[in-house]
Computed example of a mutant assay.
Amino acid sequence: MNAVSKVYGKGQGAVAALREVSAGIPRGTFTAVMGPSGSGKSTFLHCAAGLDVPSSGSVRLGDTELANLGESELTELRRRRVGFVFQAFNLVPALDVVENVTLPLRLSGTRVDQGWLAEILRRVGLEGRAGHRPAQLSGGQQQRVAIARALVTRPEVVFGDEPTGALDTMTARDVLRLLREVVDGMGQTVVMVTHDPLAASYADTVLFLADGRIVDSMTAPTPEKVAERMTGLGAWK
């Protein structure tokens, strides 16, 4: 994204969620986005993923300028070229694992590649659970289903919005290791918003937002260095 600003509301009540933010996410990397509450993390994610339209600036996915797309084209882009993993797993209770994972393909009328489906289920550790419904799975397993669903369209980038926020520490580590493996083993690009320094430490790069601006970045992050930087932003005072 280049010089992206996002303003909500008008006149006296206008709130600037992003202020001329520029960031490039290299392919095949794992990027974490952190910042205090209200810093613009979710707005950054939503603009980058085509879920929200910037007030100014440009967002590109590969060679595609998102501002040039109509609503139906954006919907198509989100279905085919972008994967999403949320804090709430957003699974359909009445569908089993395979049906939940392949839902994006069915919505877009795309044939399911059975070999690719089997490969994804194996990589996320769900090959023995294919016929289970969400209620029969643990929280960690449900998030693995959500990650598999995000990968099934072979997207150019997977966006995670607090993907470990609803999980206990041990389960969160399993899911983070899986996201790391998705990048290292499959060449996937992952961008994850998180408030957790441990989660951020699994990324290659951490971007720090404050007051709608990127104020710092960190490569080779550790939980301690990330926590120290967040304290410097006033996040936990």
Rank of each mutant, 00 (worst) to 15 (best):
V7A: 07
Y8F: 15
G9W: 12
L18T: 14
R19F: 13
R19C: 10
E20Y: 00
I25F: 09
I25D: 02
G28M: 08
F30C: 06
A32F: 12
M34D: 02
M34P: 00
G35F: 04
G38Y: 15
L45T: 07
L51D: 04
L51W: 06
S56T: 02
S58R: 13
R60Q: 15
L61N: 02
L66Q: 10
T75D: 14
R80N: 04
R81S: 08
V85Y: 03
L91I: 09
P93D: 06
V97E: 13
S108K: 13
T110A: 01
T110C: 00
R111A: 07
V112Y: 12
D113V: 01
L117G: 10
R122D: 15
V124D: 07
A130T: 14
R133T: 11
R133A: 13
A135Q: 12
A135R: 01
L137R: 14
G140T: 06
V145W: 14
A146G: 06
L151D: 01
L151V: 07
V152R: 05
R154D: 11
E156Y: 00
F159Q: 14
G160Y: 14
D161K: 08
E162G: 09
T164D: 05
T164F: 06
T164I: 01
L167N: 11
D168E: 11
D168T: 10
A172F: 01
R173Y: 01
D174Y: 11
E181C: 12
E181Y: 00
V182E: 11
G185V: 04
M186V: 03
Q188F: 02
T189L: 08
V193E: 00
V193M: 08
H195R: 11
L198V: 11
L198R: 13
A199C: 15
A200C: 09
S201F: 03
A203Q: 13
D204T: 09
F208E: 12
F208A: 13
G212T: 10
G212W: 08
I214Q: 04
V215Q: 09
K225P: 09
A227E: 08
G234D: 10
